[in-house]
Amino acid sequence: MERHEFGVAVRQLRENTPPAAVGLPVGRRRTQGLRREELGELAGMSADYVRRLEQGRSHPSAGVVNAIARALRIGRADYERLCALAGYAAADGQVPTDLGPGAMRLLERFTDTPMFVSDAAMNLVAVNSAFLALRHWDLTGDPWEWNIAWRTFCDPFTGFKQSVDDATDHEAILAAQLRSTLLRYPADASLAALVDEMRSRSRLFDALWRTPRPVAAYESSAAFIHPDAGAVTLVGSLLAIPGDDLTALMLTAAPGSADAARLAEIIGAGGEPAIVKVGQSGPG
Results as ranks from 00 to 15, higher is better:
Met198Gly: 14
Asp188Asn: 02
Leu183Phe: 07
Ser180Trp: 02
Pro214Glu: 13
Arg213Met: 11
Val195Leu: 03
Ala187Val: 05
Ala217Met: 04
Arg135Cys: 00
Trp150Asn: 05
Phe160Trp: 05
Arg213Ile: 09
Arg184Tyr: 02
Ala189His: 13
Ala187Ile: 05
Leu208Ser: 06
Pro186Val: 10
His136Tyr: 15
Leu178Met: 13
Thr181Asn: 05
Glu219Gly: 10
Ala187Asp: 14
Tyr218Gly: 12
Asp142Tyr: 02
Met198Trp: 12
Asp169Arg: 12
Thr158Tyr: 00
Pro143Ala: 09
Ala176Tyr: 01
Glu197Lys: 13
Arg203Gly: 15
Arg203Gln: 14
Leu174Phe: 00
Thr140Tyr: 06
Thr211Phe: 12
Ile148His: 04
Arg184Cys: 05
Pro156Cys: 03
His136Val: 04
Lys161Phe: 01
Arg203Lys: 13
Ile173Cys: 08
Glu197Cys: 13
Val195Asn: 08
Asp196Thr: 15
Asp188Gln: 11
Thr152Ser: 15
Phe205Trp: 11
Gln177Ile: 01
Arg210Pro: 04
Pro143Phe: 02
Arg199Tyr: 13
Val195Arg: 05
Arg199Glu: 14
Ala217Gly: 09
Ala167Asp: 11
Asp165Met: 00
Glu171Ser: 06
Leu174Gly: 00
Tyr185Pro: 10
Trp146Phe: 15
Asp138Tyr: 06
Leu182Gln: 15
Ala193Leu: 12
Phe157Lys: 06
Asp188His: 05
Trp150Glu: 06
Arg213Cys: 06
Arg199Pro: 09
Ala167Lys: 03
Asp138Met: 06
Lys161Val: 14
Trp137Cys: 09
Arg199Lys: 15
Arg213Asn: 12
Phe157Cys: 02
Ser190Lys: 15
Gln162Met: 07
His136Asn: 01
Leu183Asp: 15
Arg210Lys: 14
Ala207Pro: 07
Ala176Val: 01
Thr158Cys: 04
Ala216Thr: 12
Trp144Pro: 01
Arg210Tyr: 04
Leu178Ser: 10
Arg201Cys: 12
Arg210His: 10
Arg151Phe: 08
Trp150Arg: 09
Thr152Ile: 12
Gly159Ile: 00
Asp142Leu: 07
Glu145Phe: 02
Ala216Gly: 01
Phe160Thr: 03
Ala149Ile: 04
Arg210Thr: 15
Asn147Trp: 00
Ser190Trp: 04
Trp144Ala: 14
Ala217Lys: 08
Ala192Cys: 11
Arg199Ser: 13
Asp206Lys: 11
His170Met: 03
Trp209Phe: 03
Ile148Trp: 03
Gln162His: 08
Asp206Ile: 02
Leu194Val: 09
Leu204Lys: 15
Asp206Phe: 09
Ser163Ala: 08
Arg179Met: 08
Leu174Cys: 04
Asp155Met: 14
Arg213Gln: 14
Pro143Asn: 07
Gly141Pro: 07
Ala216Ser: 07
Thr181Trp: 00
Trp137Ser: 13
Thr181His: 02
Ile148Gly: 05
Pro212His: 09
Ser163Gln: 07
Tyr218Phe: 11
Ser200Val: 11
Pro214Leu: 10
Arg201Phe: 06
